[in-house]
Simulated assay, not measured.
Amino acid sequence: MATPLGIIALVVFGIVSIATLLGNGFIIVVNCHSWLKRRKLVPCDLLLTCLSIFRFLLQCFALSHQYIYISSPMDFMCNNILKGIGLAWMYFNMANVLGTTYLTVFYCVKVTTFSHPLFLWLKPRIDRLVPRMLVMSILAFVLFSVSPVVRYWRTESSCSLTRNLTANTSHSEAPEGSPYMILKPLQSSFSAINFSICLTASIILIVSLWKHTRNLKKSGMGTKDFSTQAHFEVIKQLMFSLFFYILYFVTMIISMTDILMFGNFERLISDIIHALYPSAHSIILIWTNPKLKGVCTRILSSRDRSS
């Protein structure tokens, strides 16, 4: 970390993290202001707000982890703090994956025109289903994982008080690994399932938009209006977002398998790539959402006039 490359990587990580906090913070503020005015949020805005909260907190914990690791001595208290932050990071990371999956499925069902019975059944129900499923999935995951985590911390506390395990302590009660290690199988399967669903929904959405754009060009409508160009822009943004999401998933697997130890330069590069997706995707969401884009444009234009 003290090398020139390490310092540059830390600066880049800080810049990407700030971009993530600003982009997702903007979405949270705009949608919460809209909720305070109208006392309700449409399902799309609710999903965007939840996803942005997850990403904002996720990046806060990632920054805190880096700061404490670099600035604090690696004593017993520091290790416990880092374990707690790592556990919180894991929860919000999986919440981010879940929110991304539900948002992609929501857009896929809303935009695509497939005549498959599943899509026809989901279209009129997706507004009610997705927010409920998001809340239920997070609650189910927390309830399912809280027992092993509480057990670990109780065992860890008893070991820290005695400084040594007694001879008659069973092997199952010994604190092996961190809570992150205990929940790693759950996180791996959870992330793989959500990644598969999100990847499938994204591909279906891209294929549907591409077919619709091709039909517009064949009918000659594409030469008379801007719909074809608009569809091409959406397809490019979706492919760009999908590319960063794949990188995000790969770096998440790297962090779960501990191939790169935390604190190494290579691990910091992996963390930078991991933080790129929440940052880039928030910018794409702002630019493709009419309400968010309108607010952002007004803010930028007012700043230009004032300067």
Rank of each mutant, 00 (worst) to 15 (best):
D304M: 13
N96H: 12
P179I: 10
D258Q: 02
W153M: 09
L21S: 11
L260K: 07
S52F: 12
R303Y: 14
Y102P: 05
L47N: 13
V42K: 15
V250R: 03
F249R: 00
D225R: 14
L165T: 05
G23R: 06
C32P: 02
K293G: 04
L36W: 08
S279D: 04
D225A: 14
F195N: 01
R39T: 08
L63C: 11
S189A: 11
N31Q: 06
I126R: 01
S208A: 10
P124H: 01
L10N: 09
T113L: 12
T49K: 04
Y248S: 02
N96T: 15
L5I: 09
L300H: 05
P148S: 08
N96A: 13
V234K: 14
N168S: 12
S137R: 00
M252F: 09
F56A: 03
T112C: 15
L10T: 02
N24T: 12
S307P: 08
L300T: 08
C198P: 02
I53Y: 10
S170R: 14
V109I: 15
F244T: 06
R267W: 06
I204C: 03
F190K: 07
F76Y: 04
H212E: 14
D258K: 03
N80P: 00
S270I: 03
K40A: 11
F144D: 00
C50S: 12
L260W: 06
C60F: 12
Q66V: 10
P124M: 04
Y107L: 13
A95W: 14
V16H: 11
L247S: 03
M239Y: 08
V16G: 01
P117T: 07
L5H: 14
